[in-house]
Amino acid sequence: MSELLPFSLRIWEADFGLPTVDPNSLTALTILKMSNANVRITYGSCPQYAAIPSLTRNNKLLAEGSDFLESVLSVCNLDSQLDGRLQGLSMAYKRYFLETFEPLFFYDCWIHKPNYEQLIRPWYMSAITFPFNFLYMKSKRRQAVERYHCLKKMRTRENFLTQSYEAVSCCLEDFNTLLADRRSYILGELPSGLDAIVYSYIKIALSLPVPDVRLQNTIKNYKYLCQYVRNLTRRYYPEVEVEYKHVQPETAVNERASTLTLLIAAISASTLMMAYAHINGIIHLKFPKINLSR
């Protein structure tokens, strides 16, 4: 009987043209959609009241916390339609993607200063009810810094970033090669948990209006992967429209200088260059003589 009752999925809000802004929330939602499950979505704004994301059915908690995704995957059992070999392959590629792409995505959002201060922090501060937003962000930031030091190990920040971008490029290239034959899903014609994970992370990474777009530009180099993400968006989320609820893109991207500022800067630069050229004899400017003798 309980099998017929709908799942209740509590996730972070939709924004920036995304069904939800959080990778775990989007992965769970995509898994449920791929499984054709009956799901009721609620958007949470206070993680202290009830975990976000979390999955319940008939008031029974099925998934939350650190093993949220694993629990959702085992509840939906999406990979069971694959044969044994493909199930193993799906498991291996899931670990590969999460071990390679996720740490860099995490760094880009929660540690990289411009992105964190201009987009991630303002978004969560606005989306979570006051005063719980301060408590949540304080603990989340502390955890993020701890995690970053654990990931970085003994490397410098530059070394960590160089090695992470190299690993991510190699990983995305591998997925791009798999998708080069224009198959519908990564492992063929059937969806798997791997598709939900890869789709969610790439879709969010491409859609967030972050000031530093280095990661987005890296992803955009892989055209089959980007096409695959567009196809899945059309298939599972055709109704989602691009809107900006909590952070406007104008404040998220670097502000463009006004026309007046540009004009003043251009005149000043030209004047200085002319004066320099004139003083050094590169050009000779003739000024009309004014007769003062009368």
């Binding site: 392959l89 670990r95 071990e99 798999l178």
Partner: peptide, 18 residues
Amino acid sequence: ESDQKSDMRAYMSLVHNV
């Protein structure tokens, strides 16, 4: 082949992780 190399990297991640 390139897909075999991809598979190899994925299984190495699995072994490292698990």
